[in-house]
C-alpha cells in the first residue's frame, strides 16, 4: 500500500528529500502501523511523535490504509 507522508519541524530530516519538507509517497506492507512507518523512515524509536492521519490525531499503533495522508511532527512544548 502507498501512503502520503509529510514530516514537520525537526522530523523532516528523516524524509527522502532530506530537510526540504515536501510531502512524499511511501510504500509499506499492508496493515503497517504509524510506528512501523516511523521505524522504516529511521526515526529513532525513543523520539516522541504526534501523528495525524487524514487530519485526525491517532496513536502510533494505528493501522494505516492505502491512500492515507499522514502528517508527523514532534511535540514541542518549551518556552
Amino acid at each position: 500500500m502507498r501512503v502520503t507522508v509529510r514530516l514537520y519541524a525537526g522530523l523532516s530530516r528523516y524524509g527522502p528529500h532530506g530537510p526540504a519538507g515536501e510531502a512524499f509517497d511511501y510504500t509499506l506492507p499492508e496493515g503497517s502501523t504509524v510506528h512501523e512507518l516511523l521505524c522504516a523512515l529511521g526515526v529513532p524509536d525513543h523520539a516522541p511523535v504526534v501523528a495525524l492521519v487524514q487530519h485526525q490525531v491517532v496513536e502510533l499503533d494505528h493501522p494505516l490504509a492505502d491512500g492515507d495522508a499522514l502528517a508527523l511532527f514532534p511535540p514541542v512544548a518549551g518556552g
Binding site: Y8, A9, G10, S12, P19, A20, G21, H55, F73
Partner: peptide, 11 residues
Amino acid sequence: DAEWGQVDILQ
C-alpha cells in the same frame, strides 16, 4: 525550523 531554513504550516 531555523536549522534547515524551513517554514511550514500544518492544518
